[in-house]
Design a protein around this nucleic acid. Structure first.
Length: 407
RNA sequence: GCUGGAAUCGUCUAGUGGCAAUGACAAGAGACUGUAAAUCUCUCGCCUUCGGGCUUCGUAGGUUCGAGUCCUACUUCCAGCA
């Protein structure tokens, strides 16, 4: 079982701070997890990710299945080793991507789809997603879920029930694979400070483990169930109950697209999910309000492609709202993107310079912008964690959001 | 000097008698939430009460109901020959 220590609980009964102990190191929560879909955070090196304070990354099973193939990642020693991240890792199941493709056929077994790269036909099932994720070897896996994009209650209910059926199969397959990998021993707790596992230099491996099959990743891997139900809180409650009853290590909350109504939904879901297991809010974090509301109502980790995608497109976060660095008004602006920011971009470069890099399509433009945006969201969640611990969350939230959204 | 060719929106470019006139780039702005995203959308002669109005294809004339397109002259540029 994944070890999760709750270090403080907030007075509203939902928010908390904690530490998730993974085989590749600890995650102090709440935490923003960098989206490294294809085993890389676009435009950034893993060293840059470490330097900007990222604690963990999330890769995608669908993308890694298509390229370079999950067996190759296993051969390389797993996601952390392959990518040189050497820290805590998550994988998404592939459900979200597959159900975003144009030609998806849902079958009894799972979902049939075509590669967006070359049209190759694939079928993904709960079992194959688990197998792929075990080959990729992230510390935390997501159950294969059906994300419906409908506004219709009946459609959402059908998708939710399918997600629940698939969850049972995911759990069974996960435990089968855990046994094969020699990871069925109880987790013994966090490593000692200064150990290889704490430093993150190498994947942590247990000393007294039965010798695994050759080529099999030997570290513990954990499974999160994914709560669905869309915008319907009765379905959310049902889904949370179902997921809570399963033998999983934590929970993903999926199918959320906007902060509107998210507070009520999270109150419903997180009141049902067991407190002692971590919760990941899937895909949310492009808007600062997502992070505040998410943490306030009991989510421990977040991932989102928004910050880096917007960075590549020239949209940069500041405490006064987003700016488009490509706008002509920045041609002569020799101040940093955000003077209060401690990132490499803001400490060393001006808006005028960044504007120039973007207008001339220099690669560095995307690098520096990505460093800044990723640091911005990582920092917000770090501050949220601090403020929850010293009981200043409400004040921080109000001050931040007022300034961000009223400028 | 002679001969031939060419001049179209910031740039390059399509357009041989019936549309403010093609496409690309540049420029201006917007979008982006478990990344089919180094992507996508809009604007791009001037004015507009969004119906339309006005002025445009080197310059000046001409032919024609109608000219970026045909004719004449001029200007500039390019190539070749002197």
């Amino acid at each position: 079982m994944l070890k999760f220590d709750i270090t403080s609980e907030y007075k509203n009964g939902f928010a908390r701070t904690g530490i998730i102990h993974t085989p590749h190191g600890d995650i102090r929560t709440p935490a923003f997890v960098g989206a490294a879909t294809r085993a890389t955070v676009k435009a950034l090196t893993m060293q840059e990710m470490r330097d900007l304070g990222s604690q963990a990354i999330l890769a995608n099973t669908y993308h890694l299945l298509l390229a370079p193939g999950t067996d190759l990642i296993k051969e390389a020693g797993g996601l952390a080793e392959f990518s040189s991240w050497h820290g805590p890792t998550f994988t998404d199941s592939g459900g979200f991507q597959i159900f975003s493709l144009p030609d998806v056929k849902i079958t009894m077994n799972g979902a049939k789809f075509k590669s967006h790269i070359n049209g190759d036909k694939f079928e993904m099932t709960p079992e194959s997603s688990m197998q792929a994720q075990w080959a990729i070897g992230a510390d935390i896996h997501m159950a294969f879920d059906h994300l419906a994009k409908s506004e219709n209650h009946k459609d959402m209910e059908i998708a939710m029930r399918r997600t629940h059926d698939w969850l049972d199969r995911c759990v069974a397959e996960h435990h089968r694979l855990a046994k094969i990998h020699g990871c069925d021993m109880p987790f013994e707790g966090p490593p000692e400070r200064g150990s290889a596992r704490m430093s993150g230099a190498r994947p942590w491996r247990r000393a007294e483990r039965t010798q695994p099959e050759k080529g099999i990743l030997s570290h513990e891997q954990y499974l999160y169930a994914v709560v669905q139900g869309g915008t319907f809180n009765d379905l959310r409650a049902e889904s949370a109950k179902y997921c809570a009853s399963k033998d999983v290590d934590g929970f993903g909350i999926g199918g959320v697209f906007t902060a509107d109504g998210m507070d009520e939904m999270l109150k419903t879901v997180n009141a049902i999910l067991p407190k002692e297991k971590p919760r990941h809010l899937l895909g949310m974090g492009q808007e600062p309000i997502d992070l505040f509301v998410g943490a306030e109502f009991g989510c421990d980790t977040f991932d989102c492609v928004g910050p880096t995608r917007m960075a590549r497109n020239g949209s940069l976060y500041t405490n006064d709202g987003r700016i488009n660095i490509k706008n002509a008004k920045f041609i002569h602006d020799f101040s940093p993107v955000m003077p209060e920011c401690d990132c490499e971009c803001c400490k060393n470069y001006t808006k005028a310079y960044l504007h120039h890099l973007f207008k001339t399509d220099e690669i560095t433009a995307k690098v520096l912008a990505s460093i800044h945006n990723e640091r911005f969201v990582v920092h917000i969640v770090d501050e949220i964690r601090e403020s929850l611990q010293n009981d200043s969350f409400e004040n921080y939230k109000e001050t931040f959001l007022n300034r961000y959204y009223n400028n």
